[in-house]
Amino acid sequence: MHYTAAWQQLHWSDALYVLVASLRTLQLTFMSVLLGTLLGIPLGVLRALSPVVRVLSSPLVDVVRSVPMIIQLIILDTCLSISGWPLSAFQLGTLALGAWMTMVTAEIVRGAYEAVAPGLRRVARSLGMSSWQELRVVSLPLALRGGFPAWVGAALCLVKDSALVGIFGYVELTKAGQILNARTHHTFLVLGGIGATYFFICHVITFCTRRIERRMAE
């Protein structure tokens, strides 16, 4: 019997498919950046202020940064299955990428916090601010502004690292590319197009954040 699939060749509807997949990539990135930032900023400040927290959390920071993301994902996936909390691939990806982002953000915030001139801090305290006020009004805003470019760099890393979650069944850009490639066999066209989409996403993020940086510098 002669058999041909209905849409074996690339079709315009595939553009929509890639668009949806890139939105899913952005969704995963956004959620893990959100999680990582919300947890990372307090952790970073605590790491800068308290030696106990620094000693306790430094192995975590170390491990997250020197074990490949794919191994982290596999281990987390296995642990979750064992513990009887099977999560969706999206939740798994958010957790693993968010953990990475937490540690990286914490390091960025700590570095930026320690870079705030110590004299400024003493001035704030001698003006009668409490240590909490000094942190909230003086040190933290300065540290967040100083750490912003590095934080954007980490977020861009996450856009690219989110490709690994595709292996666990979350259909984001890279996985969508693989599916299209398996159907059409236009390998270079499909993978090139997917690459161009990542390129576009990263450049748009860089462009927007440059403007924010410029506005903050004014």
Binding site: L156, K160, S162, L164, G166, Q178, L191, G195, Y198, H203
Partner: peptide, 15 residues
């Protein structure tokens, strides 16, 4: 620097 390493690996191997 603007594409995932995973995509680069796929592009070399399958491409």
């Amino acid at each position: 620097r603007n594409t995932p390493v995973l995509l680069q690996v796929y592009a070399v191997y399958f491409g």
